[in-house]
Design a protein around this nucleic acid. Structure first.
Lengths: 106, 106
DNA sequence: TTCTTTATTGGCCATATTGTCAGATAGCGA
DNA sequence: TCGCTATCTGACAATATGGCCAATAAAGAA
């Protein structure tokens, strides 16, 4: 273990900390768009870039984050990298959030 | 509408932006603890403070954030303020996140 | 009114997150 | 090898978030 920072980040693996980590990774417009799209099938970085816009490197970083947290997986084919969802159940999560939004609306 | 900042924040109300906002509010250890506790019934700020620790003012700010996003509601009785969950369905969300964590584990 | 309890707000600093640009890197074909 | 396409990484600036302390507010009791 390298330093104090790593300690602080890794040691606390309480239920809530873990949940918060996953939620943080998903709590971003672009990443939600990406996950939503991937839930309908594998996509290349280029496709996703076209989907969310902005700089390609930004998209790449969002993907790296999702990958680092085990939400997606990548596969290279020639010069193209394809991403796919590792946790299809995040779709239920979308449903839940939508429910919260509705419930809140009243 | 006051200024450009407000514009930028409010104008974009796409499905994903709204979802991301809700997720961001929940994506914090202390706030998850608070919501979890409130899902089992109304609590005073003091109770919640005892639960999550740290500074009372920090807890109060977490509550203010949850309130601003319509997740909780408060009620004052004498000098004590009680909070309660407005969106019980966030519990399903907990279940979903747990599922993602499990699915990811393999 | 003044004091006490309970909670909120403002100021400030440290850290985290996001986005952009420029420069690597990987794979492959000429 | 060189060049091309597709993607990633590093450095950096801008903004957002989280936490603590001190000051303030709200409600009621003395």
């Amino acid at each position: 273990m390298a330093n104090k920072e790593d300690m602080r980040r890794q040691v606390d693996s309480s239920r809530f900390t873990q949940q918060a980590r996953v939620l943080r990774v998903l709590a971003h417009q672009s990443r939600l768009m990406i996950v939503d799209r991937l839930s309908r099938g594998e996509c290349s970085v280029g496709d996703l870039h076209e989907l969310v816009g902005g700089d390609l490197s930004t998209v790449s970083k969002h993907l790296a984050l999702l990958r680092a947290h085990g939400v997606v997986e990548d596969r290279r084919e020639r010069t193209t990298v394809y991403y796919r969802l590792l946790t299809p159940c995040v779709c239920n999560l979308f449903t839940c959030v939508t429910q919260v939004l509705k419930e809140r609306g009243r």
